[in-house]
Simulated scan of single mutants.
Amino acid sequence: MKNIRITKEFTFETGHALYGYDGKCRNVHGHSYQLAVTIIGTPIETPGEVKLGMVMDFGDLKKIVKEEIVDPFDHATIFNKNTPHVALANTLAAEGHKVILADYQPTSENMVLDFASKIQTRLPDNIRLHSLKLRETGTAFAEWYASDNPE
């Protein structure tokens, strides 16, 4: 088998606040996130196939990640919907701001888990999500690997 990994990178701006946290990140703030999405599969070998030699068209991967992650999260503020931040979120939304109420504390670790779930459901059956790397700052990131998360 000739499995190949391909990676596409994305950037988006998102604000968040960590309710109950004992540091500065309890305050609403934002990051310029960088997301690297790596998939694994076998390149298409069917003669005459327009995507001959590709594991997956980078444009097709871009469409999935853009629809599931970049468009919803870019220039949004994410809050844990199970905290008192809901009041702030509702106020911001009423003022026309883009708000996401998540089922989790919006750390990079939880965001990368959420992103993996969203992306996996959209991939073709012959393609597997290999890994995600979500860079929050120039020196801090969270990674998700399929091999660390057997089903």
Results as ranks from 00 to 15, higher is better:
residue 2 K to D: 13
residue 3 N to F: 09
residue 3 N to K: 15
residue 3 N to E: 14
residue 4 I to C: 15
residue 5 R to H: 09
residue 5 R to E: 05
residue 6 I to A: 11
residue 9 E to P: 03
residue 9 E to D: 12
residue 10 F to L: 02
residue 14 T to Q: 13
residue 14 T to M: 15
residue 15 G to T: 04
residue 16 H to S: 03
residue 20 G to E: 12
residue 21 Y to R: 14
residue 21 Y to Q: 15
residue 21 Y to C: 10
residue 25 C to Y: 07
residue 27 N to H: 07
residue 29 H to R: 09
residue 32 S to M: 07
residue 42 T to F: 03
residue 42 T to N: 13
residue 43 P to C: 05
residue 45 E to P: 00
residue 46 T to E: 14
residue 46 T to Q: 14
residue 46 T to N: 12
residue 50 V to M: 11
residue 52 L to I: 12
residue 58 F to A: 06
residue 59 G to S: 13
residue 61 L to E: 09
residue 65 V to F: 01
residue 68 E to W: 00
residue 73 F to Q: 01
residue 73 F to V: 03
residue 75 H to G: 00
residue 76 A to Q: 04
residue 77 T to W: 00
residue 80 N to V: 01
residue 81 K to G: 11
residue 83 T to S: 15
residue 95 E to G: 02
residue 95 E to K: 15
residue 100 I to V: 12
residue 101 L to H: 07
residue 105 Q to P: 02
residue 106 P to A: 08
residue 107 T to F: 04
residue 108 S to N: 08
residue 109 E to C: 06
residue 109 E to I: 03
residue 115 F to H: 01
residue 115 F to N: 00
residue 117 S to L: 03
residue 118 K to D: 04
residue 119 I to E: 01
residue 120 Q to E: 15
residue 123 L to M: 13
residue 124 P to M: 08
residue 125 D to G: 08
residue 127 I to M: 07
residue 135 R to S: 15
residue 137 T to M: 02
residue 137 T to V: 07
residue 137 T to D: 00
residue 140 A to I: 13
residue 147 S to K: 14
residue 149 N to Q: 09
